[in-house]
Design a binder for these strands. Sequence first.
DNA 1: ACGCATTAGGAACGTACCGTTCCTAATGGC
DNA 2: GCCATTAGGAACGGTACGTTCCTAATGCGT
Lengths: 319, 319
Amino acid sequence: MLETSARLLKLLSLLQTPREWSGTELAGRLEVSTRTVRNDVDRLRNLGYPVHATRGAVGGYRLGAGANLPPLLLDDEEAVAVAVGLRTAAAGSIAGVEDTSLRALAKVEQVLPVRLRRRVNALQTYTVAVPARRRGPEVDPQVLTTLAAACRDHERVRFDYRAHDGTATRREAEPYRLVNWGRKWYLVAYDVQRGDWRTFRVDRIEPRTPGGPRFAPRPLPAEDLAAYVSRGVSTATWHYRARIVVHAPAEVIAQRLPATAGSVEVIDEHTCAVTTGADTAETMAMWIGLLDADFTVHDAPELSAALRRLADRYQRAAG
Amino acid sequence: MLETSARLLKLLSLLQTPREWSGTELAGRLEVSTRTVRNDVDRLRNLGYPVHATRGAVGGYRLGAGANLPPLLLDDEEAVAVAVGLRTAAAGSIAGVEDTSLRALAKVEQVLPVRLRRRVNALQTYTVAVPARRRGPEVDPQVLTTLAAACRDHERVRFDYRAHDGTATRREAEPYRLVNWGRKWYLVAYDVQRGDWRTFRVDRIEPRTPGGPRFAPRPLPAEDLAAYVSRGVSTATWHYRARIVVHAPAEVIAQRLPATAGSVEVIDEHTCAVTTGADTAETMAMWIGLLDADFTVHDAPELSAALRRLADRYQRAAG
DNA sequence: ACGCATTAGGAACGTACCGTTCCTAATGGC
DNA sequence: GCCATTAGGAACGGTACGTTCCTAATGCGT
């Protein structure tokens, strides 16, 4: 049987997972009586952790936000993500938080197990900060976290959903999972009005408050949700695709282009082909500038036109 | 007197600060006897947290990396930096860690006090992910964290330092603080060989292992180290500066250009002037493309030349 | 080599807390 | 209305806790 302090940390860890726990479940996991679980919940509350409880047949416990930040219990994957995000911020990719990011990074790395530090180093070496257009972020992080919270809490969401042609429909759905695939976020949800499962592009969702009532979760439509999502959208990720010839070695270009942003094929030792895409030809034209290499375009008139427009702007700007 | 569990969390929090603590100091902070502090250190060790101890007159305790990750105790500023870094990673600015970043972000935001969540939202609104060239990152995060650890542990560092003209000299210094100013990192250190304070550009430092011996800290050369650093480097941050006229409203351009990357002045309701800089005219030319607006260049022949070269590349690429 | 200030850890003591069992009361969804 | 959940008090035997006191080991500065 765990001693009290160890058990409190384990309880805190369980409560930081994105789900609710009944007292009976917690008692089983911690191998104590349900009374002891209630004693422990009281102890956490006395320490400043606002453990929320819901009474009733579907009730349970979960951790909420309070006056102070509790100690964060991260699993290996989450800790790696935190460290990578902080390294990126500290290295100047995100303006305005370099100092505090470095302080937080120093704190994290001080206690990061060696095996995780190696993974952070490996990820840092092979990831790239993707340039983002301010006015058209792929996904508003606020929308992401709002949907993530609704998934966790089993609460329906109401939102405006924009179709390809710009028209918006009011939707109400039971959200289950957020899936990242092909640099886009998708929401797998049960559409209440249509009585069936739907996959929604998160960048087209505009949540409406208040949300809906709680719901009892249904079995998911597939075991592997990433595969489920990819089957539905595999050829539609980018509005615009093109293949260009870049006059630089493939391994040089591969380092500048993340695997998810396109593919690089060797043509010869000085030349490679890049197949990539973007939402528009304009966006793609700007992206290519960051490759910092001469290139040629074949069979892509829209891209050629976009490049001419950008070239013209630069030429006129130069005087 | 605190109960045992609360005291253990407080002890863990103290040990995550970047310094060593003697048993006597910890006993004072926790209001218990030094024997109880040793009892508590044992309890933390039993829970898997590797508390390192140094015996001897300058000995003390601090937390190291072990097999498991301890609960992270972050202050308000650090928590905000973590959330901002994770939001950026989850939103797709950093490829490869979107899923786990969102999971970690959901966990953090679930417990983030409301006042901190507002600060994260505010920071997210006004920060921009800065595009980074893969082959020449301003600062290797590994170098940053190595130097941060040496500052914390009061250990001398040995490094090769590259001057403007590319020559490198071997240096040995006592590192005190890392300061972020003008999107560059500086190390404020005491140069042992020259017997005086020096400010080093971190992107020019190549640390050499092993490091040096420990040292007794000296009083810092100034109270406000940011001001101290800026006085020494205020006109030398960018190799190249220029002022351009952008044919878009100032408030639109200000949103796309972070305050640290330059300044925006209103000319009229449709036009503004941007003063910015970069390491080279080439880099600046590519940066300007991301403003996504027509512009004109006056009195900047190098920038005009760089824009012509890039325009020519695009024109030739378009066919 | 010595002094000093630190960590390390055992023994003994009185006190307080702990987990469990048993019970009543309240809540909320179906 | 039923069922499954939270809430929390009382009583009990047992265990852990913090402190005091002490010896032993370590490491830096002189």
